[in-house]
């Protein structure tokens, strides 16, 4: 089956978006300078070239939930740097910088909110925080979110933006794969649906655990979905990568996801899923 390239498979990260909130943002793909408000109205899609801007967790949440309904439940935890890890820069410094530039305690935000009136538990990753990598704090927040969703019997929606496990916490990060998978079983025991939304990127340890175990799996158009990154594959095997490799449409054509949805249609798609499942958690 030929793999078609996505029409919009460019995700761009814009340096200007770190830190303070500028009025204008430059598209990293075509170079166009776009008025922030206009970009926001356009779902952070470049009006000139159609590239998707990376979304912060807060922007993603605002784009998905009914206005004013989100109640953040992120636990007040931060990494204690258990290995006292240092490469060219101490991990403690990287954490501090990431906290300051994002205003987040780690790479995920959790909370409850309504999507067209359907109450859900949301966990949204933020790629700006050390590549959305999963360390102990992320594992802890995700497990807590699932346990709460199971208790409250409300669907769990996980928006993935992660390059994988956090290297700086070593095997303790690897164990978060088992932690989140264990907590996922609480949802199954309670008969609570779990919907995963894979965005750019959804790879590595998060993909080889929780993100692959949803009841319904949607991919945002252009998302990168896989285990090993394209560079590692090329370096290890010397294989030529097919066009569109590991992108959302490739994932759909290989049976990895239930649907590919453009960013502007994501909320409506979630509403459809939540509507068809209406009543599923009230039977138990």
């Amino acid at each position: 089956m030929p793999i078609r390239r996505d029409d919009r498979d460019r995700y761009v990260e814009v340096e200007l978006r770190r830190g303070e909130e500028p009025l204008w943002l430059r598209c990293g793909s075509c170079g166009e300078l776009v008025f922030r408000r206009k970009l926001q109205e356009n779902n952070y899609i470049c009006p000139r070239c159609g590239a998707y801007f990376f979304l912060t967790a807060q922007e993603r949440i605002a784009a998905l939930v009914d206005e004013g309904t989100f109640q953040e439940l992120t636990l007040p935890l931060e990494s204690d740097d258990p290995l006292s890890f240092s490469d060219r820069k101490p991990y403690a410094d990287r954490l501090k910088e990431a906290r300051e530039s994002t205003g987040l305690s780690d790479a995920v935000v959790i909370g409850v909110g309504n999507i067209a009136g359907h109450r859900v538990m949301l966990a949204v990753m933020d790629f700006r925080f050390i590549g959305g990598s999963m360390g102990i704090v992320v594992g802890e927040q995700l497990a807590f979110a699932m346990e709460r969703a199971a208790e409250e019997r409300i669907p769990f929606v996980f928006v993935v933006a992660s390059g994988g496990a956090r290297v700086q916490e070593g095997v303790l990060s690897l164990l978060q794969m088992a932690k989140t998978v264990a907590a996922r079983q609480k949802l199954a025991q309670a008969g609570v649906p779990y919907i995963a939304v894979l965005t750019y990127p959804s790879t590595g340890g998060v993909m080889a655990s929780l993100a692959s175990l949803a009841d319904i799996t949607l991919a945002e158009q252009g998302a990168l979905i896989g285990f090993a990154g394209p560079r590692v594959i090329q370096q290890t095997t010397g294989e030529k990568l097919p066009p569109g490799f590991q992108r959302a449409r490739y994932a759909l054509e290989h049976g990895l996801v239930d649907g590919v949805v453009p960013r502007e249609g994501l909320r409506e798609e979630l509403v459809r899923v939540l509507q068809v499942l209406e009543g599923v958690t009230s039977g138990g």
Partner: peptide
Amino acid sequence: YPGVEAEAANIAGAIAECIA
């Protein structure tokens, strides 16, 4: 194994399923 075929056959999902 990090390879094209392994990815096409969902290596991530196969690992997740083993853990679960």
